[in-house]
Design a protein around this nucleic acid. Sequence first.
DNA 1: CGAGACGTTGAACCTATTCAACACTGGTGG
DNA 2: CCACCAGTGTTGAATAGGTTCAACGTCTCG
Lengths: 250, 250
Amino acid sequence: MKSRRKSPVNLVITEPQHCSIHLRLKILGRLPFFAGLSAKALEVINQRFVEVGYQADEMIYAAGDPAERLFVVAEGKIKLLQHPANGRNIMLHILSSGEFFGNLTTMGVVTYPDTAQAQTQACVLSIRADDFRQILDDHPGLALKALEVLGERLSSANRRVLQLSSMPVEQRIAFTLLELGQKLGYPQDMGMLIDVPLSRDDLAEMTGATPETVSRVMSQLQNSGIVVSGRQWIAISDWAGLEALAGQET
Amino acid sequence: MKSRRKSPVNLVITEPQHCSIHLRLKILGRLPFFAGLSAKALEVINQRFVEVGYQADEMIYAAGDPAERLFVVAEGKIKLLQHPANGRNIMLHILSSGEFFGNLTTMGVVTYPDTAQAQTQACVLSIRADDFRQILDDHPGLALKALEVLGERLSSANRRVLQLSSMPVEQRIAFTLLELGQKLGYPQDMGMLIDVPLSRDDLAEMTGATPETVSRVMSQLQNSGIVVSGRQWIAISDWAGLEALAGQET
DNA sequence: CGAGACGTTGAACCTATTCAACACTGGTGG
DNA sequence: CCACCAGTGTTGAATAGGTTCAACGTCTCG
């Protein structure tokens, strides 16, 4: 019953050290967020952005740092963490290409409330918070889009509160896997592969459980033929079965 | 050791049935949110708002209803709830005068993700979502303020995720009481009174625990001289002691 | 005054944590 | 190229924190 094999998660990224996104303008222009802006405006915005590459596990900023920048993921995956007093971490989000993080609100906020860390090798664009503020002032429509983004994050956070408050671990894991599958999954022969290297500890940080418990639940899911997984990767082989475990809607 | 007495929480509200805020313009004008707008602009905005009164426990909207309106609390307290599959509720927020709820984002959102219910008798102003959208278009600065509001809510939700993921019930209750005290407390002879009628069940819905557990913890806090409480009310008599229990910063 | 809501307390039970030992994997250096 | 080792994952047994179910006390309102 050993279904382990070399990780099917794709890790090839353009460049090791420096992040070589030379077509930033194209990337920024493709963001739904900036859709509708003139080429000229985009060019101006583009000039304000800086690109930086990170190794897997490298920290981008730490909770409590002065919140001077807004970031956009260009390539790779970034995770947002919180740090309780006890040693463990809590993962709030995994972000992929095109998603924002850092200081999105530009005003009252003085320090980052969470820590951003590269989950894979990654390339990130960033801009000073007050430059972003300026852009929002110049293009009023953007603030509305930013509202949408924040609104979606708020809903997501509230869903998580609901899960933590009312579901047993197995159900929380089922939900989390479904969300990951939707967001980061891509179809494979063995099922819907979650296309991020993801350890038991990572899943534990996402579900508010211990790594041991996650391991037990995953074993059980594997025995039921619902997921297939190995070192740092997970694939969902029976989506409907997982939905059934989660309770109802995705 | 019986410290019960008639509830010290003030429940007097202007009018029983209809909510009689005849000075809406003044109320809206006082909101930090609308600060800086001209009297003329305020007048226009004011005309778009409607006022409605609610009895305690009355529902304002239910999760899943079409999200057509944005609300502002004029008087009284409103709670925002989520409903897990199992019978229990989860309280996301208690809002008081000047705070927004309902559809703040005006676009993608089609149904309310949560339920709004009057915690006390209350008066609420509301406006159609697309009228509000129009106002945001006319006064670009407002969208930035809305961003601030949402950003603060998001932080709050994330703090709650952290608590649920990493703290035992006692600590979560301590934190929750401190937050309530900060937001709704007012000094009294017996300590910082939390100025909302609040049952054990309410606290349970806020902390992700059962009413029984909350009752046990509260008894213990009362014996330690940290809080005083009775039927539907709670006062914090030893703020520093409560902070110590919560761990560190407020 | 009575009824129903609210609160308290006890005891059994159960889920998830904790601590610990062990197994597998992949990468590194000899 | 192989052996080893650290990181990762698995599994077991004991424990603890919280829930559940149930009974009872107490306050408030009609």
